[in-house]
């Protein structure tokens, strides 16, 4: 019955300011979260959060994990500070630093995606936005540690998948992932951004669509009203799913992990 929600309604739910953001998921999933800052080259990008935390596996073992996320922020001040979740190259380079340490200390990496896209501005281009994203894809594809990605809100374009080279892609029911925003898509193809609702239908951007097209591995159901109205329930479901997936991935050898990750993307559009 929930299947009947129009795709564009889901886009709006994914963007809802009241929807829990990455920080809430991190706080619930990781104990002792220690946030790290900066790319050691230019600055600290508020749109990308990186850190280290402890995670409890289904067998009650505790394990240190690295975490990276894009974060839009809840309040207006926080949104401005986080640039509405649109990362600059410095944010992607912070992620690369976080990933390198995860590999060094053999920690799994959990990423959370919630971004309209990479920041499309002058400063970002001057510092190599395209190269920063490409380097994330390049590093994540060969990192010999388990990687789990959770799309919790909007997943917009290359700026989102820079955090999305993973062994498992989990999507919330009302999260979306697309090549471009529905508005941008409509304006490029039909020169009319107001046709976003129509675009959302043909783009196949909902979690259910992406599961059907085998891009997403799992969809986590959200109760009536979505994650905005029942944050504890949804966060709890994400925590349980991340734990159990991680438990499974830890049973694979590094070679198996890397081969399966390569094949996961290799078959898309083959």
């Amino acid at each position: 019955m929930k299947k009947q929600i129009p795709a564009y309604e889901r886009v709006k739910m994914a963007r809802d300011a009241k929807r829990p953001g990455a920080l809430e998921y991190i706080a619930a999933i990781c104990g002792d979260f220690f946030e790290v800052h900066g790319d050691r080259a230019y600055g600290d990008d508020g749109a990308v959060i990186c850190g280290i935390g402890k995670l409890e596996l289904p067998d009650s073992r505790e394990l240190a994990v690295s975490v990276a996320a894009t974060c839009r922020g809840r309040t207006i001040e926080e949104r401005v500070r986080r640039n509405f979740g649109m990362a600059q190259p410095d944010g992607y380079r912070k992620l690369q630093r976080c990933l390198a340490q995860a590999v060094k200390f053999r920690r799994p990496l959990i990423t959370f995606i919630d971004t309209p896209g990479a920041y499309p501005g002058k400063s970002a281009e001057e510092r190599g936005q395209g190269m920063a994203i490409a380097e994330c894809l390049y590093q994540m594809s060969a990192a010999p540690i388990p990687i789990i990605t959770v799309v919790i809100g909007e997943g917009g374009s290359g700026g989102a998948i820079a955090l999305g080279v993973a062994d498992r892609i989990i999507m919330l029911e009302n999260a979306v992932l697309s090549v471009l925003s529905a508005e941008g898509f409509a304006s490029i193809l039909w020169k009319d951004a107001s046709r976003a609702a129509e675009a959302s239908e043909v783009m196949k951007l909902t979690a259910a669509d992406l599961l059907e097209h085998k891009i997403a591995d799992f969809v986590i159901e959200e109760p009536e009203g979505g994650a905005s109205e029942t944050p504890e329930v949804v966060i709890g479901r994400v925590r349980d799913r991340v734990r159990s997936e991680l438990g499974d991935l830890l049973r694979l050898s590094e070679a198996q992990l890397l081969e399966r990750r390569y094949q996961k993307y290799r078959v898309i559009g083959k």
């Binding site: 894809l137 390049y138 390569y262 290799r266």
Partner: peptide, 20 residues
């Protein structure tokens, strides 16, 4: 645009192949 998410995923596929 007309290949949507499949098009986006080619970024990962090609980058992973270059990495290998």
């Amino acid at each position: 645009m007309q290949e949507g998410i499949y098009s986006l995923m080619q970024m990962i596929k090609t980058s992973a192949a270059i990495r290998r």
